[in-house]
Design a protein around this nucleic acid. Structure first.
Length: 552
DNA sequence: TTGATGAAGTTTTTT
DNA sequence: ACTTCATCAA
């Protein structure tokens, strides 16, 4: 146990003054705003270390962290394990809003009565079925209802936690804030809310306006701001500062801390969207081949309707054989364990030598190889697999090696059995999810075979992360890249609320660590399949270009 | 069937 | 801003 006064940031890190005082706050709630790249996750990790190692969060009390995305929630948990160690880190719970609500529902389900009553084996789906099924949107309201009606439930929550962390708080919706208030308002539990109002781009989806001020009032929280940005090169920081001046003049970064001239910013204007696409593909090709930038460090950001705006670019990249990933249509099938299993199986069948895939496959199917039963299982599976190899060879001799690949997968899945598959992930307990993943995996491999007729190469693409990212600005939130291209910066695509759009533009700009490119085209031809197909004149978004003029 | 008119969607996460 | 879809009148 360390005395609070003697505590120093873990792993020898230094924090800026406001981050340090936030990390060491012992009594009050905190409303901590911080720009992009300020180290919000790090600050929370250090605060967790302070609370746990000084006993400010007194054993056996725990810390609860609530995020929006599963990824963010996992990252936070992982960072805290790194800073606090596995032992103290075990007193840190990290959930998404939905996961947190579902835990409350699962534990205190009996509190729900009448039309809201639920069976123990309820599911979450896309329509409400009395007692059997609820929808995602029901999770938070039902959790609120439980906490409002059951002193047992609310006391259980309040007695478990001494501290609550709220990440990306600028995106908090009415319902989510209601849950926080019902659970923690008027108690001595310390809440630490972290976020950036300049990056509030979910307003149209219900994120509350002025949530930091509301929170500061409701919870008597101390408002603090972190000013530094450790992500971007100085040139990019100065550009960000120009936009921050308009968005929120109180959180402009101190100029004297921005030293040097590193970083690269420029804009390009084109007559047609085709010319824009070809020029960008050339540029990306140079970055990858001459500058040796990893493709995954390059991102192309589009405000919205990515398939319409980036279709020429994707075709141009295709032509140059530059791997890219359209993050809009990838439902993250690549990280599904069942998909991985199928890909490993096919790699072993059709690949030349795939020792890694084989090892993964065997470990998934028979994790304990020294066990006698298991090793006989393994031999039986090897015999089965050899038979499959023979059928591949037979089809090959007929000159049609690929014809039966999905049949082989099906018989493989039947061989290993439904129980093995369900054990891969808790998601698969509902078999509908499992069949969905299997169906999507088949569809994705077929899609890749269109681009790359050789199956082993198509499979490499399936798992390959070495691809240029093409995504909407909204999807890019929280990510960072060496080089960022923001294309189609025109009035027409940034319709609607001016302030919200400026925030979106800021989010895009602040994803870049070293290099930022803006493009605009006078004409934009719509892709095939649209009824009206004449070229459309576009209007330059002059405000956004004006920010970068000084830096080109 | 065609044209006129108006509404709605576009940007998203979640077990 | 621009497209698509639904609805109604001709």
């Amino acid at each position: 146990m360390i005395l609070a006064d003697n505590w120093l940031p873990a792993d020898g890190l230094t924090l800026e003054p406001n981050a340090l005082s936030a990390a060491k706050e012992k009594v009050n709630c905190l409303a901590l705003t911080a720009g992009p790249g300020a180290g919000k996750t790090e600050m929370l990790a250090q605060r967790a270390d302070f609370l746990l190692s000084t006993g400010t969060c007194r054993y056996p009390k725990r810390i609860l962290a609530i995020s929006f995305k599963v990824d963010a929630s996992k990252n936070l948990k992982e960072r805290i394990r790194r800073r606090c160690g596995a032992d103290m880190g075990s007193r840190f719970d990290s959930y998404t809003f939905h996961a947190f609500a579902k835990r409350i529902i699962d534990r205190f389900r009996v509190v729900l009565t009448n039309t809201d009553a639920l069976d123990a084996n309820y599911t979450i789906g896309d329509k409400k079925v009395t007692r059997k099924q609820i929808m995602f949107s029901d999770l938070v309201p039902l959790a609120i209802q439980i906490l409002e009606n059951s002193t047992v439930a609310i006391n259980a929550i309040r007695q478990t936690y001494s501290d609550v962390f709220l990440d990306e708080f600028q995106d908090c919706t009415n319902q989510q804030y209601e849950l926080i208030k019902v659970a923690f308002q008027g108690t001595s539990i310390r809440l630490t809310a972290v976020g950036d109002t300049k990056q509030k781009i979910m307003g149209w989806a219900g994120a509350l306006d002025g949530i930091f001020e509301t929170f500061a009032n409701d919870f008597s929280a101390i408002p603090l701001n972190m000013y530094r940005n450790f992500r971007s090169k100085p040139r990019l920081l100065r550009l960000q500062n120009e936009i921050i001046r308009v968005l929120d003049s109180t959180s402009v970064m101190p100029e004297d801390q921005i030293v040097g001239d590193e970083g690269e910013i420029f804009s390009k204007q084109f007559q047609t969207s085709q010319a824009e696409a070809e020029s960008l593909a050339d540029m990306i090709c140079n970055w990858v081949e001459l500058e040796k930038i990893p493709p995954s460090e390059i991102a192309v950001l589009v405000s919205k309707q990515l398939d319409l705006y980036a279709n020429h670019l994707m075709a141009a990249l295709e032509l140059k054989n530059i791997p890219y990933r359209n993050e809009q249509q990838m439902q993250d099938i690549t990280v599904e364990p069942a998909a991985r299993l199928i890909v490993d199986h096919l790699s072993c069948l059709y690949g030349k030598r795939e020792p890694k895939a084989w090892t993964r496959l065997m470990n998934q199917l028979t994790p304990f190889s020294d066990d006698e039963m298991q090793s006989s299982d393994r031999r039986e599976f090897q015999y089965f697999f050899k038979e499959q190899l023979k059928s591949v060879a037979a089809l090959e001799s007929l000159g049609d090696p690929l014809s039966g690949w999905w049949d082989l997968v099906k018989s493989f899945l039947n061989r290993i059995g439904i129980e093995t598959l369900v054990a891969l992930s808790p998601d698969y307990e509902s078999h509908t999810r499992l069949t969905e993943v299997i169906r999507d995996t088949k569809a994705r491999i077929e899609e890749l075979l269109e681009l790359e007729p050789e199956l082993p190469k198509a499979l490499t693409r399936f798992v390959d992360d070495q691809a240029v990212r093409i995504l909407t600005i909204h999807k890019s939130k929280g990510l960072e890249f060496d080089s960022v291209i923001m294309m189609a910066i025109d009035e027409e695509i940034f319709f609607g609320d001016r302030d919200a759009n400026r925030c979106a533009f800021f989010v895009g700009v602040s994803r870049a660590k070293r290099r930022l490119i803006l493009t605009f085209s006078n004409e934009r031809e719509r892709p095939d399949g649209y009824k009206k197909r004449w070229a459309t004149r576009r209007t330059k978004q002059s405000e956004y270009f004006s920010y970068i003029d000084d830096f080109v």
